[in-house]
Amino acid sequence: MRILLALLSGGLFGAGLHISGMTDTGKVQGFLDLFGAWDPTLAFVMGGAIVPMAIAWRMVPGRSPLAGGTFASPQEHGLDNKLILGSVLFGVGWGLIGLCPGPAIASLSYGGWRGAVFFIAMLVGMLMAPFMVRRVDEMNARA
């Protein structure tokens, strides 16, 4: 049951990325090209995705997940410099190519070897992340 729901979710995500045009890295870069030929499509994608999720969050209190277990509780420990520095780094990489993690995974199916290069580099970055986080924590401890 959990596996089937995860398959359904991943499949819907992939279909949504394809239909919305968000597998087209040029459209994503176009959204970030605020001072050029701005393409607002990504804002419509975000808006379209946020509406069903906002309704779902309101259904969470007092219930359990359909497949059992408990709801994962999102982190809410306020703002810290890891959130800020991490988001800056992510935004730079996102702007350079137009791929964020979801489409980067999906790009394995359409991006050819270039999609695979980005994907593998992203995994390397993810493996490097704990060391970078430790450095930031050390800086914070000294400050």
Partner: peptide, 17 residues
């Protein structure tokens, strides 16, 4: 497409938590 991505999130949240 965005709605589909939203529904993907709904399935994972309400289904698997």
């Amino acid at each position: 497409g965005g709605l589909l991505i939203g529904f993907a999130g709904v399935v994972l949240l309400l289904g698997n938590g």
